[in-house]
């Protein structure tokens, strides 16, 4: 009984303190899923008055999900049945180890579309239906994303994140992400990082402290931060800035008191370095110590 009262008190205090939360890409992706999977996050976020994310998270979402779905849409326009599509996919992606993840996502997407129909409709109609769902998902994802948060920080002013998926001439989906080069700077990433040097130092120190226990992604980011110390404008290159993904998302929300993410390997060190609460509604679903507004 005493323990329950103490827990309740903790939650009450937390409710007064934590009213704003900054979301990583991982949670945004979970949120856009169907009811059962999104429910823990939706109910977790219900009592926050301010929910933010970063435009850089949107870029990651575009790259990781929307581009793959658009690729599937493109291939599905070249075949007559979904069975044929699976074969084309395996031919195009199956032989290259680097493409294994893309192939896996595409095959899972096909399965997801087929499951609810349970062979009730013809193969040609199944293909039409899948193409419509892919088109709707890709073209409307940004609208969903923007409606899902109170505010999207855009400290990097990433032009590639701001370009919405669209239908181009000939009915093709355009989800392209242009290359960035330092001789044609169109974003503010270098000045953004310069303005946040102090936070970058704290992150570097935390990664160093973790040593070999740091995730591969953080180790890669650590190397990029060294490059930044030498030449800030080197950051204005897409194959460089991509390695700082989680760091950019985190620093974009530096004014928010709490972070929420579902990939602890990167976000526990980031939250510690930046002295933020880290909330993971998926990991803490069954954990009594969850501190969130309204408990």
């Amino acid at each position: 009984m005493a323990a329950t009262e103490k827990g309740a008190q903790t939650r009450s205090v937390a409710a007064k303190v934590v009213t704003a939360v900054h979301l990583d890409t991982s949670l945004q992706i979970e949120r856009c899923k169907a009811g059962r999977k999104a429910k823990p996050i939706v109910s977790f976020l219900r009592d926050f008055r301010f929910v933010s994310t970063s435009s850089y998270a949107k870029l990651e979402f575009k790259r990781a999900w929307l581009q793959r779905l658009a690729y599937l849409y493109s291939l599905s326009g070249q075949v007559k049945t979904i069975g044929e599509l699976s074969g084309v996919l395996a031919d195009k992606l199956g032989s290259h180890p680097l493409h294994r993840r893309q192939l896996s996502t595409c095959l899972q997407a096909i399965e997801a579309f087929l499951l609810p129909t349970n062979d009730k409709i013809s193969e040609a109609v199944q293909l039409t239906r899948m193409r419509a769902h892919l088109r709707v998902a890709v073209l409307n994802a940004y609208s969903w994303w923007e409606a899902s948060v109170t505010h999207e920080y855009n400290g990097t002013n990433c032009i590639r994140a701001s370009e919405r998926p669209r239908i181009s001439g000939g009915g093709k989906l355009d989800v392209s992400i242009p290359k960035c080069r330092r001789n044609a700077i169109r974003c503010r990433i270098h000045s953004f990082l310069q303005d946040n040097r102090e936070h970058l130092r704290a992150i570097k120190a935390e990664i160093d402290r973790l040593g070999s226990n740091a995730s591969d992604e953080l180790k890669g980011a650590r190397a990029v931060l060294d490059i930044f110390e030498d030449d800030a404008e080197k950051m204005c290159q897409d194959d460089i800035c991509v390695k700082l993904g989680d760091i950019l998302v985190a620093i974009d929300g530096i004014n928010i008191e709490s972070f929420a993410a579902n990939n602890d390997k990167e976000w526990v060190p980031l939250a510690r370095a930046l002295q933020k609460h880290l909330l993971n509604p998926l990991r803490l679903q069954n954990c009594e110590s969850l501190q969130q507004p309204g408990g």
Binding site: C32, A34, R101, W144
Partner: peptide, 14 residues
């Protein structure tokens, strides 16, 4: 969500 039907996809934000 217009992406709800993709729920069965792996949690792959990378």
């Amino acid at each position: 969500s217009p992406l709800a039907l993709l729920s069965e996809l792996a949690d792959d934000g990378s």
